[in-house]
Amino acid sequence: MTKSDLVEKLSEKVTTLTKKECEEIVETVFENMKKALHKGEKIEIRGFGSFTVRLRRAKEGRNPKTGDKVAIPEKRIPFFKVGKELRELVNC
């Protein structure tokens, strides 16, 4: 399922909204989740899961082609933890 499939499904379900409106709402939801993570905020969706930002510390890597050492700076990684309900749902 892609984002546009999701919009399609929603507009079939919510007959009071146009497809365009559904699309805008879906965009709004994901854009604001992104913004929250950008701010380092945790997102908790009951029954679905939670998103947090984890810190990867700086490390030294190597260029696999030349073997040169390269410094990999510290960076932030989005992390998703599946909620209990959803974890059980996908496993049955």
């Binding site: 399922m1 892609t2 984002k3 999701l6 499904k9 929603l10 379900k13 919510v14 709402i25 879906v26 939801v29 994901f30 989740m33 992104k34 969706i45 029954g47 679905f48 959803l86 749902l89 996908v90």
Partner: peptide
């Protein structure tokens, strides 16, 4: 509805691709 749809899709064994996310 958005999260229910996502959940039902995953329950059915289908993956979800949200471009940009």
């Amino acid at each position: 509805d958005i999260f229910d749809t996502l959940k039902n899709t995953l329950k059915a064994g289908d993956k979800i691709k949200i471009s940009g996310f």
